[in-house]
Write a protein that binds this DNA or RNA. Structure first.
Lengths: 219, 219
DNA sequence: TCCCTTCTTTGATCCAAATCAATTGCGGTG
DNA sequence: CACCGCAATTGATTTGGATCAAAGAAGGGA
């Protein structure tokens, strides 16, 4: 994106903060904005009346939150941690898209990536065991932290923060809190992961984690 | 789409037939074409080495099969029934997209719909019971057949063909063949569905089916 | 028509994960 | 510091769906 584009963006945007648990976008209301995540983690969820919940997507910086070319929205977006976003009124953003068609192309590509991720997760939800599910999730995070930390190397030790509580991990993996906890202690006992604190994880050997995650975790 | 566009398309396309079980697109090979489904049902699947399989998408006429702006492809596409498609070489199709940007916009919207469908299914796979899963699938088909049959009315009786065998239904719902079969007989016993033949279904009262499907089946 | 194969249903048993139930740990706050 | 409320672990028990095992249907080819 060019500098000119960026300055245009800053003219029509404004910062906004959300704290853990706050609803950013609701099932019921039309979406009036596009948002770029600056910091924190946002969860997209679907819910059934009796309280059952499924996280259908996680968003990290610098992901986008919003619905291109559609006013209604079938998900909840909730702050999974304290979150800071940069918001654009929908109309202004779409005007910008008209001016810079490349932006639209980028949004399209991002949507395709999201579709692949969703389908990857369908395999996990439908066919993987609890142990494989938890391992796959940790692997996802481990890989993410690797990319952020050092794009070119492939170190075998990684340390990262869990951006979710156990309850959210359960909702992402289609499990219960208790099962997630038990699987984590199993992985710990097997020496595949270490935990200095409930939210801090070390993976001494990623290959070992890949093993128990079962395949299909290409990215 | 204009007549001119259509004639352009027919110049660069050709018909092709596949019979049940045939692989149309593989995991391993780059995608070289775009295809419009004329008749039959195509399943998109992801597989683990030990044989576990998950159907991540079903395609019916007049859906598109292919990957815009990406050569590699993380799924298998397999004929779930006898299938007839209309194929376009990838380069030719993308040239067409350049000429008619509206086409690209349509593809984008379709991708967004697929994403919503995938996430809807994530809720089903992660949080619904076997009974709810089977009912949800039948509901999906019932609604589809309603749309095809009479776009404007809302009759309460529907009859339609199951486009999948039990094994495929199981792979779509994250269940086993046996469980699918049992749930079908339960629904039959409860009078919620009727089956003249293993592949032909009647739904006397869609509202009753909606009830057991649990919500979240908006479309 | 009768095999032969493949699909489907049904039954009996088992097991992974859910549920129920404490207990422990931990961060804030008066 | 001690208290409170929430998050996480750990244990005991239950259960929904998987697995194992047969026994029907339904093609479909010779």
């Amino acid at each position: 994106m060019t500098d000119e584009q960026l300055s245009r963006l800053s003219e029509i945007s404004h910062r906004k903060k959300y704290s853990v648990g706050q609803v950013i976008m609701s099932d019921q209301e039309p979406v009036t904005f596009f948002a770029n995540i600056i910091s924190g983690t946002i969860k997209l969820t679907k819910t059934i009346a009796d309280g059952r919940q499924q996280i259908v997507g996680l968003l990290f910086p610098p992901d986008f939150l919003g619905r291109a070319f559609s006013r209604n929205n079938p998900y909840f977006a909730e702050a999974a941690s304290d979150v800071e976003v940069c918001m654009f009124p929908n109309e202004a953003f779409e005007r910008l898209i008209d001016v810079y068609p490349d932006l639209k192309h980028r949004l399209f590509e991002r949507t395709l990536d999201e579709l692949d991720a969703a389908r990857e997760w369908m395999l996990l939800l439908g066919r993987k065991t609890a142990e494989e599910k938890v391992a796959s999730f940790l692997l996802l995070l481990a890989r993410r932290s690797l990319v952020v930390a050092c794009p070119n190397e492939k170190p075998s030790l990684t340390r990262f923060e869990l951006p979710l509580r156990r309850a959210d991990m359960a909702d992402y993996l289609g499990l219960t809190i208790e099962t997630v906890s038990r699987q984590l202690t199993r992985l710990k006992a097997a020496g595949i992961v270490g935990m200095s604190d409930t939210r801090t994880l070390e993976v001494p050997d990623i290959a070992a984690l890949v093993d128990v995650a079962g395949q299909g975790m290409a990215l």
